[in-house]
Simulated scan of single mutants.
Amino acid sequence: MIGGIKIVNQTEQLKNQVKELEEVLKKLDKQLFYLRNMQGITIRICKQKSGYQYYKTDDNGKRVYIKHKDKEIVRKAFQKSYYECVRKEILTQKYQIERFLKFYNPTAIEDVYDKLCDARKELVTPIICTDDDYIEKWRQTHPGEKNTFPIDGQFVTDNGEYVRSKSEKILADLFLKKDIPYIYEPEVELSNGHKACPDFLVLNKRTRKSYYWEHFGRVDAEEYAIRNFPKIYAYEKSGLIQGKNLIISMETEKQPLDLKLVNEKIEMYLM
């Protein structure tokens, strides 16, 4: 569907690239300062059967053969020339990115629809679906609460949902706090014909990519591990790969849910 297109705002990435180029530029200028005594030295190359011969031009314009023991002069001269060429390209790239950012409007295409009067909006299907419209369709496509195993109702999320564990409540509340759309216990069909209900389906609004999030609450308990670890294998066989479209969190009786690690995963995949 055309409306599912998402134009990603590249402003921060481009600004970060400018900063990276500036850091490389500082290092280059430092290296060029060390090679400043090579200023004005011109090296000529002559190809021979046995390899290459190098010459430099003296003050009278005469070519002087550079002996092998003095080859370090050639290396420094070539290195300096290379640094200067790279520096020129960095400055060009930096100028082009900065000029692009000056005129860049990541919402320009969406603005065309937003500026239409209400009468036109009722009859026009926008090429770019707004985040709210996309999320609504995403939720309709992936209905939640498909796990038929009863919930005892002990844990209630800030969004008013009943979940099965304290850690699931912590995760759901984190998603809500960080404005990450999520669906609790959606259904996914596995390659073996069976169906599973991962704990969450979460959405990166910026990229509009979905991830399943599965939490394993007692990986130190043998019976729990025997029952649940085959699920990871079934997920992989069905194309749900950790880091690609599956995120996993876990805990033990002595080591509770690591919130620092959870937040790192949220930043990495969902922001």
Rank of each mutant, 00 (worst) to 15 (best):
D173K: 06
D173F: 04
L174A: 12
L174S: 10
L174F: 13
L174P: 01
L174V: 04
L174N: 12
F175G: 02
F175P: 01
L176Y: 15
L176M: 14
L176Q: 13
L176E: 10
L176H: 12
K177H: 12
K177Y: 14
K177A: 11
K178M: 14
K178D: 12
D179N: 15
D179A: 14
D179T: 10
I180R: 12
I180F: 11
P181A: 03
P181M: 03
Y182K: 10
Y182R: 09
I183F: 09
I183M: 06
E185Y: 09
E185I: 04
P186G: 08
P186F: 10
E187F: 06
E187G: 01
V188L: 09
E189L: 12
E189P: 00
L190W: 08
L190A: 01
L190F: 10
L190H: 05
S191A: 14
S191H: 11
S191L: 04
S191T: 13
S191Y: 07
N192C: 08
N192Q: 06
N192D: 15
N192P: 13
G193S: 08
G193I: 06
H194M: 10
H194N: 15
H194P: 00
K195H: 14
K195W: 01
K195P: 00
K195E: 11
A196V: 03
C197E: 10
C197T: 14
P198F: 07
P198A: 02
P198G: 00
D199F: 04
D199T: 03
D199P: 04
D199A: 08
F200W: 10
F200P: 04
F200L: 04
L201K: 12
L201W: 03
L201E: 02
L201F: 07
V202K: 13
V202R: 13
L203Q: 03
L203M: 02
L203P: 04
N204W: 10
N204Q: 07
K205S: 07
K205I: 03
K205M: 10
K205D: 00
R206W: 05
R206K: 15
R206A: 11
T207M: 14
T207L: 15
T207P: 00
T207R: 14
S210L: 05
S210Y: 10
S210H: 10
S210F: 01
Y211C: 02
Y212E: 02
Y212T: 01
Y212C: 12
W213L: 15
E214A: 09
E214V: 10
E214G: 06
E214T: 05
H215E: 04
H215N: 02
F216P: 04
F216G: 00
R218G: 00
R218Y: 13
